[in-house]
Simulated assay, not measured.
Amino acid sequence: MPIKLPSSLPAYDVLSKEGVMVMAEDAAARQDIRPLRLALLNLMPKKIQTENQFARLIGATPLQIEFSLIRMSEHQTRNTAPDHMEAFYRPFADVAASGETFDGLIITGAPIEHLDFDAVTYWDELTEIFDWTQSHVHSTFGVCWGGMAMMNHFHGVKKHLLDEKLFGCYRHANLKPESPFLRGFSDDMVMPVSRWTEMRRAEIEAAGLSVLLDSPEVGPALVEDPVHRALYIFNHLEYDSDTLNEEYRRDLAGAQVDGAEIRMPVNYFPDDDPAKRPQNRWRSHAHLLYGNWISEIYQTTPFDMARIGLDRIDLRG
């Protein structure tokens, strides 16, 4: 089954050309099934790129997915055209007022790691969203800063600023191969990393949470929080093959202005040669993880969406 998208959303054409099954809203309405309702709270500056990345992953399952885009109510993006935001995004205030529920919600990262959580201009509304997920979302997936922010809000786990940016492709160990979220995973795998902060395994486990993927070089990557029906991932399996390269070129351009020293992404360019095309070594695990997440949602979410948040089902069964 395909992912349901507005035919005018840029991701519709992008995914169609890649062979991902997509369906326009009018065609989906003729199918007599209940699609899974998934939403993306997009905090990234490059909205369209992020939409494509996550739509590609959640559109690869055999289920029909209805994909909604949500933005912060007052915060205005400076990197995406206003007409795109107006056409495809709903402010959270409108979503909350509608009383609607979702089977799943992805909360992205944001390039504001250097700020204390409560110094973020939209922190009050974001914590309102975190609390809203407990009564209106069956399962939430917090990504990078979004995952750190959720864990801090629900468990008080701190993020720690690093001396230098963790940047590149790092190997991670599969600590919980029995987890349904890691079904089909190798014993270890490569994951793109791009962040200035970390959350420490000892502090995560002291909060009663389970670390599923971990790296001796860059620390925990995937954490399960069954009490809040959530997963937190601190790295970027959703990244395209060229995303780290784009960040590297952007950082180099900025260094010409401020004189900062920019490190090449680790284990990314073949032979550490930026002139060579990077190879994607994480795509299969990205599809596995998001496919497993959606499968767990499908098996445990109430058919009656009015019961989402009422049936406190542990996603581990």
Score class of each variant (00 low, 15 high):
99 G>Y: 03
100 E>K: 09
100 E>L: 13
101 T>C: 13
102 F>C: 08
102 F>N: 07
102 F>M: 13
103 D>F: 01
104 G>M: 05
104 G>R: 04
105 L>H: 10
105 L>C: 06
106 I>G: 05
106 I>F: 13
107 I>W: 10
107 I>A: 14
108 T>H: 02
109 G>E: 06
109 G>V: 15
109 G>M: 14
110 A>Q: 07
110 A>S: 15
110 A>M: 06
110 A>H: 01
110 A>T: 13
112 I>M: 14
112 I>Y: 04
112 I>D: 15
112 I>R: 05
114 H>C: 14
114 H>Y: 12
116 D>T: 09
117 F>W: 15
118 D>H: 15
118 D>R: 11
119 A>E: 09
119 A>N: 03
120 V>C: 07
121 T>F: 11
121 T>M: 10
121 T>I: 12
121 T>V: 04
121 T>G: 05
121 T>C: 01
122 Y>R: 02
122 Y>M: 09
122 Y>F: 10
123 W>C: 08
123 W>L: 00
124 D>N: 15
125 E>W: 08
126 L>A: 08
126 L>T: 14
126 L>D: 00
127 T>G: 03
127 T>P: 03
127 T>C: 07
127 T>F: 03
128 E>Y: 06
130 F>I: 07
130 F>M: 09
130 F>P: 04
131 D>T: 11
131 D>V: 14
132 W>T: 12
132 W>Y: 06
132 W>P: 13
132 W>M: 02
133 T>N: 01
133 T>I: 14
134 Q>H: 14
134 Q>C: 10
135 S>C: 01
135 S>T: 05
136 H>G: 03
136 H>D: 01
136 H>L: 12
138 H>N: 04
139 S>L: 07
140 T>H: 03
140 T>E: 03
140 T>L: 10
141 F>P: 04
141 F>Q: 02
141 F>W: 08
141 F>I: 08
142 G>H: 02
142 G>V: 14
143 V>F: 11
144 C>D: 06
144 C>R: 03
145 W>R: 00
146 G>T: 10
148 M>R: 03
148 M>L: 06
148 M>N: 00
148 M>A: 13
149 A>R: 04
149 A>Q: 04
150 M>C: 11
150 M>R: 11
150 M>T: 07
150 M>Q: 14
151 M>Y: 08
151 M>G: 01
151 M>H: 02
152 N>Y: 15
153 H>G: 00
154 F>K: 05
154 F>L: 04
155 H>E: 09
155 H>V: 15
156 G>P: 00
156 G>Q: 09
156 G>C: 03
156 G>V: 08
156 G>T: 11
157 V>G: 09
158 K>T: 12
158 K>R: 13
158 K>I: 05
158 K>F: 12
158 K>C: 06
